[in-house]
Amino acid sequence: MQIGELAEATGLSRDTLRYYEKRGLLVARRSTNGYRDYPTEAVDWLRYIRIAQALGFTLQEIEADLPLLAAPVEQSAAVLRTALQAKLAEIDRRIDGLQSLRGELLHRLSERMEDCPLRPVAAAA
Protein backbone atom coordinates (compact mmCIF):
# COMPACT_ATOMS: atom_id res chain seq x y z
CA MET A 1 0.00 0.00 0.00
CA GLN A 2 1.48 3.32 -1.01
CA ILE A 3 1.48 6.41 1.18
CA GLY A 4 -1.50 8.03 -0.58
CA GLU A 5 -3.60 4.90 -0.13
CA LEU A 6 -2.63 4.69 3.53
CA ALA A 7 -3.42 8.37 4.04
CA GLU A 8 -6.84 7.89 2.48
CA ALA A 9 -7.55 4.72 4.48
CA THR A 10 -6.67 6.35 7.81
CA GLY A 11 -7.59 9.99 7.30
CA LEU A 12 -4.04 11.02 8.20
CA SER A 13 -1.96 13.32 6.06
CA ARG A 14 1.08 12.12 4.18
CA ASP A 15 3.19 14.44 6.33
CA THR A 16 1.86 12.77 9.48
CA LEU A 17 2.66 9.34 8.08
CA ARG A 18 6.19 10.45 7.21
CA TYR A 19 6.56 11.91 10.72
CA TYR A 20 5.41 8.63 12.30
CA GLU A 21 7.86 6.77 10.11
CA LYS A 22 10.68 9.11 11.12
CA ARG A 23 9.86 8.48 14.80
CA GLY A 24 9.82 4.73 14.22
CA LEU A 25 6.09 4.31 14.84
CA LEU A 26 5.51 3.18 11.30
CA VAL A 27 7.69 1.08 9.03
CA ALA A 28 7.57 1.11 5.26
CA ARG A 29 9.44 -1.00 2.81
CA ARG A 30 10.92 0.77 -0.19
CA SER A 31 10.05 -0.56 -3.60
CA THR A 32 12.59 -0.59 -6.40
CA ASN A 33 11.34 2.79 -7.60
CA GLY A 34 11.84 4.26 -4.10
CA TYR A 35 8.17 4.53 -3.20
CA ARG A 36 7.10 3.68 0.32
CA ASP A 37 5.18 0.43 0.56
CA TYR A 38 3.20 -0.10 3.77
CA PRO A 39 1.73 -3.40 4.92
CA THR A 40 -2.07 -3.57 5.18
CA GLU A 41 -1.68 -4.00 8.97
CA ALA A 42 -0.45 -0.39 9.11
CA VAL A 43 -4.09 0.78 8.94
CA ASP A 44 -4.94 -1.05 12.19
CA TRP A 45 -1.75 0.14 13.85
CA LEU A 46 -2.47 3.76 12.94
CA ARG A 47 -6.01 3.40 14.31
CA TYR A 48 -4.46 2.17 17.56
CA ILE A 49 -2.16 5.22 17.66
CA ARG A 50 -5.08 7.59 17.09
CA ILE A 51 -7.21 5.93 19.77
CA ALA A 52 -4.31 5.96 22.23
CA GLN A 53 -3.76 9.66 21.57
CA ALA A 54 -7.48 10.35 22.01
CA LEU A 55 -7.26 8.60 25.39
CA GLY A 56 -4.48 10.97 26.41
CA PHE A 57 -1.37 8.94 25.65
CA THR A 58 1.54 10.82 24.13
CA LEU A 59 3.50 9.56 21.15
CA GLN A 60 6.40 8.96 23.53
CA GLU A 61 4.20 6.71 25.68
CA ILE A 62 2.97 4.89 22.59
CA GLU A 63 6.55 4.42 21.39
CA ALA A 64 7.46 2.93 24.76
CA ASP A 65 4.77 0.30 24.21
CA LEU A 66 6.11 -0.76 20.79
CA PRO A 67 7.75 -3.92 22.21
CA LEU A 68 4.22 -5.08 23.08
CA LEU A 69 3.63 -5.80 19.43
CA ALA A 70 6.01 -8.76 19.60
CA ALA A 71 4.78 -9.97 23.00
CA PRO A 72 2.22 -12.72 23.52
CA VAL A 73 -1.36 -11.45 23.68
CA GLU A 74 -1.71 -12.32 27.39
CA GLN A 75 1.39 -10.31 28.28
CA SER A 76 0.34 -7.39 26.06
CA ALA A 77 -3.10 -7.30 27.67
CA ALA A 78 -1.62 -7.16 31.18
CA VAL A 79 0.81 -4.37 30.28
CA LEU A 80 -1.91 -2.45 28.45
CA ARG A 81 -4.20 -2.79 31.48
CA THR A 82 -1.45 -1.41 33.72
CA ALA A 83 -0.82 1.50 31.33
CA LEU A 84 -4.54 2.30 31.18
CA GLN A 85 -4.81 2.20 34.98
CA ALA A 86 -1.85 4.58 35.27
CA LYS A 87 -3.42 6.93 32.73
CA LEU A 88 -6.72 6.79 34.63
CA ALA A 89 -4.93 7.72 37.88
CA GLU A 90 -3.26 10.65 36.10
CA ILE A 91 -6.63 11.83 34.78
CA ASP A 92 -8.11 11.57 38.28
CA ARG A 93 -5.27 13.73 39.62
CA ARG A 94 -5.95 16.32 36.93
CA ILE A 95 -9.67 16.28 37.70
CA ASP A 96 -8.92 16.80 41.40
CA GLY A 97 -6.72 19.78 40.55
CA LEU A 98 -9.33 21.25 38.23
CA GLN A 99 -12.06 20.75 40.85
CA SER A 100 -9.89 22.60 43.37
CA LEU A 101 -9.31 25.44 40.92
CA ARG A 102 -13.02 25.52 40.09
CA GLY A 103 -13.88 25.80 43.78
CA GLU A 104 -11.44 28.66 44.23
CA LEU A 105 -12.88 30.49 41.22
CA LEU A 106 -16.45 29.99 42.47
CA HIS A 107 -15.41 31.32 45.87
CA ARG A 108 -13.90 34.43 44.30
CA LEU A 109 -16.97 34.98 42.14
CA SER A 110 -19.25 34.72 45.16
CA GLU A 111 -17.30 37.42 47.03
CA ARG A 112 -18.25 41.01 46.60
CA MET A 113 -16.29 42.49 43.72
CA GLU A 114 -15.00 45.33 45.97
CA ASP A 115 -13.23 42.74 48.10
CA CYS A 116 -11.77 40.88 45.16
CA PRO A 117 -7.96 41.24 45.09
CA LEU A 118 -8.00 41.00 41.31
CA ARG A 119 -10.33 43.98 40.89
CA PRO A 120 -8.80 46.69 38.68
CA VAL A 121 -7.93 49.94 40.45
CA ALA A 122 -10.09 52.89 39.38
CA ALA A 123 -8.24 55.65 37.54
CA ALA A 124 -7.91 58.97 39.32
CA ALA A 125 -10.16 61.70 37.96
Rank of each mutant, 00 (worst) to 15 (best):
Arg81Lys: 14
Ala125Arg: 15
Leu46Arg: 04
Gly24Ser: 10
Arg50Cys: 11
Ala77Tyr: 03
Arg14His: 00
Gly103Ala: 13
Leu68Gly: 11
Lys87Tyr: 10
Leu101His: 04
Gly11Ser: 05
Leu80Arg: 15
Arg30Ile: 07
Ala83Gly: 12
Gly11Arg: 02
Leu26Val: 08
Ala86Arg: 12
Leu101Ser: 13
Arg47Gly: 08
Leu25Trp: 08
Leu101Gly: 04
Ala86Leu: 12
Gly4Ser: 13
Asp96Asn: 12
Leu12Phe: 09
Leu59His: 08
Glu61Tyr: 02
Leu25His: 04
Asp44Arg: 05
Leu55Phe: 05
Gln75Ala: 09
Ala70Arg: 09
Cys116Val: 05
Arg93Asp: 15
Asp92Gly: 00
Val27Gln: 12
Thr58Met: 05
Leu88Phe: 09
Ala83Cys: 10
Gln53Pro: 07
Arg93Trp: 00
Arg119Thr: 13
Ile51Arg: 11
Leu84Lys: 13
Ala64His: 13
Ser31Lys: 14
Gln53Cys: 10
Ser31Thr: 15
Asp15Thr: 02
Leu101Asn: 09
Glu5Ser: 09
Gly11Phe: 03
Ala122Thr: 11
Leu17Glu: 02
Arg14Ser: 00
Asp15Gly: 02
Leu109Cys: 11
Arg112Val: 09
Pro117Ile: 07
Ala7Ile: 03
Leu105His: 05
Leu55His: 06
Arg23Leu: 15
Ser76Leu: 02
Ala42Leu: 02
Ala71Leu: 06
Glu5Arg: 10
Gly4Met: 01
Ala122Gln: 03
Leu17His: 03
Tyr20Leu: 11
Leu6Ile: 09
Ala86Ser: 14
Pro120Lys: 14
Phe57Cys: 07
Tyr35Asn: 14
Met1Ile: 11
Gln99Glu: 14
Leu46Pro: 01
Asp96Ile: 04
Leu101Phe: 08
Gly24Ala: 11
Gly24Asn: 04
Asp92Leu: 12
Arg23Phe: 03
Ile62Thr: 08
Pro117Cys: 04
Gln53Asn: 05
Ser100Ile: 02
Glu8Ser: 13
Leu55Val: 07
Ala9Asp: 00
Asp92Phe: 00
Tyr20Thr: 06
Ala52Pro: 00
Glu90Ser: 11
Leu68Asn: 15
Leu109Asp: 03
Thr58Asn: 01
Arg93Ala: 15
Ala64Asn: 10
Ala125Phe: 11
Gly24Trp: 04
Asp92Met: 06
Ala77Arg: 14
Leu106Ala: 14
Arg102Ala: 05
Ala9Thr: 02
Tyr38His: 05
Ala71Trp: 11
Ala124Arg: 15
Glu74Tyr: 00
Ala123Asp: 09
Glu5Tyr: 00
Ala64Leu: 09
Gly11Asn: 04
Leu17Ala: 07
Leu80Tyr: 05
Ala64Arg: 13
Thr10Gly: 01
Thr58Glu: 06
Tyr48Leu: 14
Val43Thr: 03
Thr40Glu: 06
Leu105Ser: 03
Arg47Asn: 14
Thr82Ala: 15
Ile95Trp: 02
Trp45Cys: 11
Glu74Ser: 13
Gly11Met: 03
Asp37Ser: 12
Ala54Glu: 06
Ser31Gly: 13
Thr82Pro: 00
Ala77Phe: 00
Leu105Glu: 03
Asp15Ser: 08
Gly4His: 05
Thr16Gly: 05
Gln53Met: 13
Leu6Ala: 05
Arg119Ser: 08
Glu114Tyr: 04
Asp92Ser: 09
Thr10Leu: 02
Ala89Asn: 12
Ala28Val: 07
Leu26Pro: 03
Leu59Asn: 05
Asp115Trp: 09
Arg108Asn: 01
Ile51Leu: 12
Phe57Lys: 02
Glu21Gly: 03
Leu12His: 06
Ala64Pro: 00
Ile95Asp: 06
